[in-house]
Design a protein around this nucleic acid. Structure first.
Lengths: 152, 152
DNA sequence: TATAATTAAAGTCAAAGAAAGTCAATAAGT
DNA sequence: ACTTATTGACTTTCTTTGACTTTAATTATA
């Protein structure tokens, strides 16, 4: 039951793959027609799945011969920009936002599947639910959560 | 005397079985309709039977094309060791004790060096320093801590 | 040739639609 | 009595659509 947006996302990523993850150029209206959706949905997909945070860069031009260019920001050794990440996280973050960041790191092959799982385990509400104001209790919850994902 | 919740639990577990215990993706409303129950009952089943402690991991998405993904955390299980560990950790644990456990896991090659680093980062007092009553702040501290160790 | 009009794109934004999440009240088992 | 299930009203999040705007290239006109 993948949404149309999911399908379009996959389509772009496959095109990029075929192109050695460099850059692809598309025509918004063509793609929209191909997937039988409104053109603005293409923008939606770009916004929600191809932002700089996701490791992509978008350029475009309007008017005759207009197009959209998607570039994959692939630094050598897949190292994302540390300070950008720290900035993005900021002083507080929800579980969903945290997942997005972790997934992006995984997709950019900076962390493994297992590493992602460990980190997600520490982001769980249940892991952070310390009844008393006790750091040692919190630590226990966290450690158990992280170990659980590895052992099961 | 199997309750509807029990039946749904079984249903999910059979689906997972068929899928080699990897992961299944369902639509909450579909399942609810199939079992003729309220959609929120699906959440109840997930909460009470598919938590991380039970060896499962849940992710979901709302909106169009929304779904719930149930992942079975692989069971190459050394269950006794797991339970011993959980016991050893107990309800609270100091940073030093936590390090000892993590180091032991590393020695026994259950986790990699990097994985150990990530887990230790989450055990730091500084990561747990933020007001414990604000989960989002705590989460941000933790995530930043865990990512930081990967960059050094 | 310089400007105006036309056409061909892409961008924006808000409303409607489609899921899933939450929580508290009730019901059913033990 | 106490714990576990069930339900439903309400909330939040994500997707889809379409009307309207902006920009660029091309064509027509003075």
């Amino acid at each position: 039951m993948a949404s149309v947006s999911d399908v379009i996302e996959k389509f772009f990523k496959e095109l990029l793959e075929q192109n050695q993850g460099k850059t692809i150029q598309i025509q918004r209206n063509e793609v929209a027609k191909y997937f039988d959706c409104s053109p603005s949905q293409i923008n939606y997909v770009l916004m929600t799945r191809f932002s700089v945070q996701h490791g992509y860069y978008i350029e475009s031009q309007r008017g005759g011969g207009g197009h959209i260019k998607i570039t994959m920001l692939k630094s050598e050794n897949n190292k994302p920009a540390y300070h950008l990440l720290m900035n993005e996280i900021g002083d507080e973050i929800t579980k969903t936002q945290a997942h997005r960041i972790i997934n992006a790191l995984k997709e950019q092959k900076y962390i493994s599947e297992r590493e992602a799982l460990i980190m997600k385990a520490a982001m769980e509400d249940s892991a952070l639910l310390s009844p008393l104001n006790n750091r040692d209790q919190l630590r226990a919850q966290l450690l158990k959560g992280m170990i659980s994902v590895l052992f099961h």
